[in-house]
Design a protein around this nucleic acid. Structure first.
Lengths: 209, 209
DNA sequence: GTCTATAAGCCGATAGAC
DNA sequence: GTCTATCGGCTTATAGAC
């Protein structure tokens, strides 16, 4: 695990602990995120979440009103966290390309919690039906945050001649699609599968020199 | 839609119609693939599939034994179809890079049915639990087919100096991850979203000249 | 503070009507 | 050949025990 991803994960947890002060609630949410990521909203049983967190099924209802409630809360945290991660990267020292490199290392790190949340956010909450209204609303509002922090980095990189001169929005959409695709591959196949270097992942937006 | 993707889709349907002679069964399967892709195995209700295909809920059971049966059948077709698509591309005229370019155009084409199946295969069938045993077995057997046809193209391209000299397996894993990520973005956001050119998608494996 | 037991509702699968 | 009605099981959510 790289220094970068450790730093970002710390940042992420800092925010998480601030947003969710109760340790038991955090425990439920963290375990729920893994189960949701693997099985989807409908496929996840409250019993699965409770068992994974070390509680009985009924216990969860002392802290959450419903399964949808847990899901919506997680989507909110994930959307928030994704925005924070990209913003944090943009505030690091270095050239724009170095910042993006840094961010990519963190997002694709084998044991990055942020990655799980990311996949959860992007994949599930936009699958149209059976998703709680509240979750859809949150995604609509907050899903653009990562883009808002990413695109300025791209434009700076283009000015500096580090990044290819394609439309920044297209580069951003491509970037997050690729990160999501690689994260999914990791979640599905475990850490055993061969994985590209960060340098390879970023070639598509690297200015040829 | 490019000439290439039309050709591949025709090839794909040719195989589909051969493997599934009954038109009603095909209709159910095609509609089921869309619903499964959007909602996942657990989130898909038989009623959804039936309604989308224009049948009543009970009707489906004249042709399939269970929901798992439909799912497993689809996973099989998707695994088969993915292998056939890559093989077909490898048999086209042109340089290795041109063949991969061709394949990518076809897989990412906005209205490619193969794309839906692809996502279904990769994402769902490996989500560990609640997935029918039979489906898991099929994936284990057939999911490597695309790689077996893709890697020789990569190696040929490396010999010809068209493709970067990274390990072929890593390039292949990266390629299919990226295609999956982009396909997901399309499925979730529709055709309105900005999308990269094929050239951009393939930069990561293009040899710098 | 945490678990067990139970009620209510949903969905998959079947059987039988038209 | 296709639909409607129904049964049984599973899951959510609650209520009450320890």
């Amino acid at each position: 695990m790289s220094v970068q991803s450790k730093a970002l994960e710390m940042k992420f947890f800092e925010n998480f602990e601030h947003a969710v002060p109760d340790e038991k609630v955090r425990r439920i949410l963290l375990n729920a995120s893994e189960v949701f990521a693997k099985k989807g909203l409908a496929g996840t049983k409250i019993k699965d979440i409770a068992a994974k967190a070390g509680f009985s099924q009924g216990f969860v209802y002392n802290y959450f009103q419903s399964k949808d409630d847990i899901f919506t809360r997680l989507v909110d945290l994930a959307a928030e966290g994704a925005g924070i991660s990209v913003k944090y990267a943009s505030e690091q020292e270095g050239t724009p390309y170095e910042k993006i490199f840094w961010l990519t290392e963190a997002l694709l790190s084998a044991d990055s919690i942020a990655m799980q949340h990311w996949r959860l956010l992007m994949t599930q909450a936009s699958s149209s039906e059976a998703v709680p209204e509240a979750a859809i609303k949150i995604v609509k509002e907050k899903a653009k945050l990562p883009f808002e922090h990413f695109i300025p980095m791209v434009m700076d990189g283009q000015k500096a001649g580090e990044i290819a001169d394609d439309p920044p929005l297209v580069l951003a959409v491509t970037y997050f699609s690729i990160v999501q695709g690689l994260a999914l591959t990791r979640i599905q196949n475990g850490n055993g599968i061969p994985f590209p270097t960060t340098e390879m992942v970023l070639r598509f937006m690297r200015k040829e020199r």
